[in-house]
Design a protein around this nucleic acid. Structure first.
Length: 280
DNA sequence: CGGCAAACCTGCGAGC
DNA sequence: TGCTCGCAGGTTTGCC
């Protein structure tokens, strides 16, 4: 399900609910998701307190008072179901990990089991294989047109594929790459290295803008903490091109045409949606 | 080295 | 109604 905005929304829901909560039980109901659960998970968690929550790329970082971090990746179908009454939760299908705290708790639900749960010392995180090669956080000040241009320079892959590469920029997925390219007016098949300075500037701005708007939409759907489960928030109803093949994009909506402008193609095995008239 | 397809797994909607 | 097919928001591996 989740790309950066959804993961950020889930993280905020968890932070709101679980910060300073003490963990008193860990129920691991499957041996593994995409990778095995950490062998010492129960021991490492029980009795600890959640000190704070963070996010890096699409990983939720649940930080413990022990100095360790529980890093959760939701894969394609992962959800975090928060609950608020102690012992008030009966496991459902695909609930693979259930964690109870004094006043709350959550179940990690993942039908496809593409998700991951890892445990590491906070101080070792930066060097961990899953984090070492990650590119900049797109919403950080350090991410800009020139930084993006640098990362794309010399790459032969189409810009669409390059933006999915977490080493170029962290946290984007198929949906928001399509949306950002649309708002930047850049054709997804353009070669990465061929973008002008103006185009990389516009692209960096479009990435920041579309992510911010999606997080805002997710945040607005968060008034009920139960919606902190990794589903696309209301923003999915605001996609300009993603999933809209054959429909008309917002910029073309004033034009008279028989068929919608939005096309769907495959790039590196992934669907790309774009408007040939507005993306060059 | 870079880029791409395949694999990991289940659920869902479309079409017959 | 029920079956089969194709497709799905991610990451990693292994092959060219």
């Amino acid at each position: 399900m989740p790309e950066l905005p959804e993961v950020e929304t889930v993280k905020r829901g968890m932070a709101q609910r679980l910060t300073d909560e003490h963990i008193y039980s860990v129920d691991q109901r499957a041996p593994a998701l995409r990778i095995p659960f950490p062998a010492n998970l129960k021991n490492a968690l029980e009795g600890r307190r959640f000190s704070h929550f963070g996010r890096r790329a699409k990983y939720i970082l649940a930080c413990l008072d022990s100095g360790q971090v529980l890093a959760i990746h939701l894969g394609m179908s992962g959800r975090v179901r928060l609950f608020d009454e102690r012992d008030d939760y009966s496991p459902g299908k695909h609930d693979h990990l259930i964690l109870q705290t004094g006043n709350s708790g959550f179940a990690l639900n993942d039908a496809r089991r593409f998700g991951m749960v890892m445990l590491m010392d906070e101080k070792d995180m930066a060097g961990h294989p899953s984090f070492k090669g990650l590119g900049p956080e797109p919403l950080d000040n350090g991410f800009s047109g020139p930084v993006l241009a640098q990362a794309l320079a010399g790459k032969k892959a189409p810009v669409k594929s390059a933006l999915l590469d977490q080493r170029v920029v962290a946290g984007l997925g198929n949906i928001y790459v399509c949306e950002a390219l649309y708002f930047a007016g850049i054709h997804p098949e353009r070669l990465s290295g061929s973008l002008t300075e103006t185009e990389t500037e516009n692209l960096a701005l479009a990435i920041k803008d579309v992510l911010r708007r999606a997080i805002d939409a997710g945040g607005s759907s968060l008034r009920d903490y139960r919606q902190a489960d990794g589903e696309l928030g209301y923003f999915q109803h605001q996609f300009a091109v993603y999933g809209k093949a054959g429909e008309t994009c917002p910029a073309c909506s004033g034009d008279v045409r028989e068929n919608g402008c939005i096309k769907k193609i495959k790039q590196a095995g992934r669907s790309t949606f774009y408007c040939p008239d507005r993306q060059r």
